[in-house]
Design a binder for these strands. Sequence first.
DNA 1: TTGCGTGCAAAGGTTTTGCATGGCA
DNA 2: TGCCATGCAAAACCTTTGCACGCAA
Lengths: 147, 147
Amino acid sequence: MVQKISYKTKQKEELLSYLETIPGVHFTAADISDHFRAQGKSIGITTIYRQLDRLVEEGQVSKYYIDESSSACFEYIDPENNCHHPHCYHCKCERCGKLIHLDCHEMEGLLQHISKEHRFLIDPMRTVFYGLCADCQKGDIHTESNP
Amino acid sequence: MVQKISYKTKQKEELLSYLETIPGVHFTAADISDHFRAQGKSIGITTIYRQLDRLVEEGQVSKYYIDESSSACFEYIDPENNCHHPHCYHCKCERCGKLIHLDCHEMEGLLQHISKEHRFLIDPMRTVFYGLCADCQKGDIHTESNP
DNA sequence: TTGCGTGCAAAGGTTTTGCATGGCA
DNA sequence: TGCCATGCAAAACCTTTGCACGCAA
């Protein structure tokens, strides 16, 4: 496994600079493309995919497949204030589409139970809980993102 | 919300008959298409998608997005011997791709905790736990489905 | 100069839609 | 006879790949 030499390019730097301003926020490749187009400094979608792939490999970005028949979802992991400590999980509201960060210490006990009793080692960073967020539970009002 | 009248067609019946033989097994729309083509009684892929969508709405089939950049995964829910009682969950091995049914009573306490303390109502039928299965944990041997 | 990075265009794959035809009630 | 269901073809999407050019080291 030979590590390739990596060049420092303008696109790479601008992408990382931007990502550093949105730790913990989830986004798609298209979101990034839109952001830079709006700024007048457009980056090719191919480059965005390639850079994100690299960052995922390096562990600086997480990749999720959350939305149905939709695009992959990425998230920058702040190395300073790392949200991805052992008790940070993701919840996705099936009604309004919100993605919520869940900080729950009780989960660890369950993960251990499942590991010991069921022999399955859960990867919290990849697992997403689907359900209803607090807002959407209230009165079961229809709060679809597209009205 | 007016319920549309549903006709009983040959394709619909054959699809449901087949699904009833594979409760709890996960499959893609293409799998179904292949199955019927092999049987000589081909069903259009469009019809398969439309029937599966309907079955998902009716709750007889679950739909998951499990594999990365790949196709959606369906599963027939046996109404007789319903695996989807309140403590049946799905685990997907990230290494070998196996989909495991996890029957765990301890999960309920956690779901209640998350509902009460974090105000998120988890839907167990939609949630998939990612991680490593027992086999793939052993010695960390490479057991990719494509050798 | 070397070879990685970029971005356009095109390909690849899955799912959805339009539309004419077929079949159930 | 109505109206839903079917399936072909085409469109819509997201993502990856090929390739020529640009640029960092």
